[in-house]
């Protein structure tokens, strides 16, 4: 079994980044950036989620393409749900 064992230092570094990003996202929310506020919040959240998936969940080190495919298709299906529902709500004559 070709298992990839990462160093514990790397895990601690990831943890530090995640904690920093949590603080950053809470601070950024208090600054008025207009429409960029929710975008920033979601970008940071996506960044954190990606780091967790890649390192904590070892997706970066797996040779298995199937795992990536599962994640991508689930996200794609979520996008279908959101986009096509929104297609209805964003074109309704009255809100």
């Amino acid at each position: 079994m070709a298992e990839h064992i990462l160093s514990s230092k790397l895990y601690w570094a990831i943890w530090a980044i995640l904690i920093c990003l949590t603080v950053v996202t809470a601070l950024v929310a208090r600054v008025d950036l207009g429409w960029f506020n929710p975008v920033a919040a979601l970008l940071i959240a996506t960044g954190k989620a990606t780091i967790v998936v890649l390192f904590f969940m070892h997706v970066k080190y797996t040779s298995e393409k199937l795992t990536t495919m599962v994640i991508v298709s689930a996200l794609f299906w979520l996008l279908i749900l959101l986009a096509l529902s929104l297609a209805d709500y964003s074109t309704r004559p009255i809100s």
Binding site: W77, I80, L84, A87, D88, Y89, S90, T91, R92
Partner: peptide, 22 residues
């Protein structure tokens, strides 16, 4: 099959534009 669901709702009050897409 996942892209067509709102054809069950054409007369339910959904947007006409979205209905065209569906």
């Amino acid at each position: 099959g996942f892209l067509v669901w709102a054809h069950h709702m054409f007369v339910a009050g959904m947007s006409l534009y979205a209905a065209l897409i569906f």
